[in-house]
Amino acid sequence: MSHRVGALLGRYPALRLGLLIAAPLTWLVAVYVVALAALLVTALWQVDSFTGDLERTVSLENLKTVLTGELYRTVTLRTVGVAALVTVIDVLIALPIAFYMAKVATPRRRRILLIAVLTPLWASYLVKAFAWRATLSDGGLLEWLGTPIGLQSPGYGLSAVVMTQAYIWLPYVILPIFAGLERVPDSLLEASGDLGGGPVHTLRWVVLPLLVPAVIAGSIFSFSLTLGDYITVNIVGGTSQMLGNLVFVNAGAANNLPLAATIALIPIVVMLGYLAAVRRTGALDNL
């Protein structure tokens, strides 16, 4: 019997593969694809405004609202802008740190730095956001530090959101870039030096091109995580709203799940666009 099963599997590689990935694929479909599909379907429904009951009739009303409403355009642009800014800041900070860790530091120091980068991940997201709330508040740490040199705390608002998010997602950007740099052989840097390339030249023409996939991997983390965030905005964002807030308000307060589902499609579309653009650069092939 087992012999025959073995022969069957030997003859049909597709069957072999199918059996192998059936369980994880079922899981992926059940948890991920179905959830997304449910989101799409919910976006087509309506809600009775008084009782809050779902009306399961298909209409494109929500899509129309989101596509034509000025509010949603403003908030989408704001959210994408914040996510882009956070990503740029994180990459700019992460590049030198990762370079130092991977290429300059002694093994001992590298380990210490790695632990230092990872440690903030042990603390809860909320604790970090509230710590920034206290730091940015009136008479908080930032004001205390800034007053002698004539700087003011930006207070609660979008700049506070950018600062906090850049802080929270920084480890997720440093780590892939660090890993990418570690894979760049030192011999390449030496060869560049031997051929007369100065440090800047080497960095620009040897290291950076090799690093693009790692930077993009890091940017996907910071960009997508910021895109979906609503908690930081709630805590340090002052009156600002981001897409996550609109989803939260509609699902949690206004009890309009269909509209919330429709709004939730925006970050999905943005992310798909981003991934498609990244895919064209070929960066994903090197991950």
Partner: peptide, 15 residues
Amino acid sequence: TDYAQWTAAWTEIKG
């Protein structure tokens, strides 16, 4: 105006 309109107005106010 009903509460749904108030809700829409409120998100609009917050911008």
